[in-house]
Amino acid sequence: MWKFIVRRLFITAPQIVLLSVLVFLMAQMMPGDALSGLIDPNIDPQAIEQQREKLGLNNPWYVQYKDWVVSALQGDLGQSFRFKMPVTDLVEQRLINTFWLSLATLIITYLIAIPLGITSGRFNDTLRDQIITGYTYIGFATPLFIFALVMLWLFGFHFQWFPTSGSVAPGSEAGSLSYVISKLHHLLLPAISMALITTVNTVQYLRSEIIDTKQKDFIITARAKGASESRVYNRHILRNSLLPIAAFFGYEITGLIGGTVFVEFIYSYPGMGLLFMDSILQRDYSVVTSVVLLFGIASILGALLSDIILSLIDPRIRIK
């Protein structure tokens, strides 16, 4: 198993390198560069050229790439020209916000998916199953950004149960209980909106896994041993059906990234997604590059996590 994980890590490293090259080249291809948004058009072109030379913007791309990687590894992702602060500092706060939002979404996703998927799979083709399946079809068909808007309007503006923007009430002191509660209050509505839509995948997946496992021969063996229906479900069907769901966990992270971009934008929740949208609109290009890179790394690590989880829980892989 260790061999498997080490080998898997060996694959991950070049993936991240390749990603960083792609992101860098893409940033290079964008119109304008680090200086163009920053300077007064009336400045002498000669001086700009000098500045360019000084910043290394005239070097060949691989030299620039090397400089970029070296400083990124030292924690320097460049300067945000809009916020006038280092990207690292800017991203740090946003990353924490997005992390909490994603975690809350994941928890709610599984809280919805597991009971619904189990009910739907166990009692397939009954009324209960049809209702749940109906919900998943609606979920598949509803665009997240529209649903999030409706939720925001309904529970934020109409009922005013939840705040409509931000990640914490202004003025609350970090670390205090009211601060934590306020944070929770802020992320609950976006998390629920996102979870209600993204969970339908997992519900359907779990449902079909259970229906599939139900018909396996070893389930008949378990019944023939004299196992009661509840034991057959708890010991044999669930364990085997949840395995691919658990393994899918890492990939779920990738899916969340796409979701947070919309949801944070709609709820003005100051996370990575909102930062991404803002900086694109402002052509704050060093920030865009960093955010894309971080999103990419998160996806790669998610896939890695999935493979490791699978290798830990499935004996058929564990042995090799």
Binding site: K216, D217, F218, I220, T221, A222, R223, A224, K225, G226, A227, S228, E229, H236, R239, N240, L243, D314, P315, R316
Partner: peptide
């Protein structure tokens, strides 16, 4: 069903055709 469960596997038992699929892989 509860009473049959008590007899299944105890008083009567079954051997299956395909040994490759009749055991729980996990």
């Amino acid at each position: 069903p509860a009473k049959i469960n008590k007899m299944r596997g105890k008083d009567m038992a079954m051997i299956f055709q395909d040994p490759l699929t009749a055991l729980n892989p996990l």
